[in-house]
């Protein structure tokens, strides 16, 4: 019994320590004198790696999710004779929930894990140490562009996801099931609010982007520098990110519905 309490205490301490270390890492990445001329090309490169390369998976998933949503929604709405509301159903679920959450989950799997593995391998092969010995701060040169790229890419990817998902819904609803396109769009337009729905979705995705890149960068930078260590760190990135996304989504949603 005593041993269990001890272990719980030890776990608590190490958890707090890790939280502290990751906060310090975050502070060092964010709080620094900006050097735009040198930083910009690095950021652009990472925006490509993190953002542009995630585009394909985001677009394809968005399309399919919109299509499935329309199909399922149509069947249910049909029972109430309300199929004209399909546009609204697709748009609201995508913009409020599915867009930010699924984009973030996909992003964690596609870009977050890649970030962790890359940083972990750089640590294992002493690339980060050698950079330190060259008096180049790896937090500035390596971590910071990746962090900002993740933070910037996520909301953009989310918006792209939303657009393709709505388009997927349109394809199925109008193109296949034969709804009237005018009604589809009109109903959607009258029910989706720019501030309440779209902005809230984008805010969510910004928060998710922040958390996912923070987790990925921390796990990679402090990975145990062995193959097994990197494998474990990559797994942790995906698991922790997913849990954080879903948990935060609940919290944010409850705030937003509370009239925030």
């Amino acid at each position: 019994m005593l041993e269990r309490i001890q272990r719980l205490g030890a776990f608590g301490l190490s958890f707090c320590e890790r939280l502290g270390v990751s906060a310090v890492l975050l502070a060092r990445v964010i709080v620094r004198r900006p050097r735009f001329v040198k930083a910009l090309p690095l950021l652009v490169e990472q925006l490509y790696m993190v953002g542009v390369l995630s585009l394909v998976i985001i677009v394809i998933s968005g399309l399919f999710i919109g299509m499935v949503l329309a199909l399922q929604g149509y069947n249910i709405l049909d029972k109430f004779g309300a199929t004209v509301q399909l546009g609204q159903l697709v748009a609201l679920s995508v913009v409020r929930e599915l867009g930010p959450v699924i984009t973030a989950l996909l992003f964690a799997g596609r870009a977050g894990s890649a970030l962790t593995a890359e940083l972990g391998l750089m640590q294992a092969t002493e690339q980060i140490s050698s950079m330190e010995m060259m008096a180049v701060d790896p937090l500035w040169r390596i971590v910071s562009p990746r962090f900002w790229a993740g933070l910037i890419s996520m909301p953009l990817l989310t918006v792209i996801f939303m657009i393709t998902a709505v388009y997927g819904g349109y394809l199925v609803g109008v193109g296949w099931l034969g709804l009237d396109p005018g009604q589809f769009w009109a109903n959607m337009q009258s029910s989706v609010d720019l501030h309440k729905d779209i902005m809230n979705g984008v805010i969510k995705s910004g928060v998710f982007g922040f958390v996912v890149t923070w987790i990925s960068v921390y796990q990679g930078y402090y990975a145990v520098p062995t193959s097994a260590g990197i494998a474990r760190a990559t797994t942790k990135t995906v698991v922790y990110s997913s849990l954080a996304i879903l948990g935060l989504d609940f919290i944010l949603t409850s705030f937003m519905l509370g009239g925030w």
């Binding site: 391998l121 092969t125 002493e126 690339q127 140490s129 050698s130 950079m131 010995m133």
Partner: peptide, 8 residues
């Protein structure tokens, strides 16, 4: 560095 530690 002993391993070279080149940027891959």
């Amino acid at each position: 560095f002993q391993s070279g530690a080149l940027f891959t």
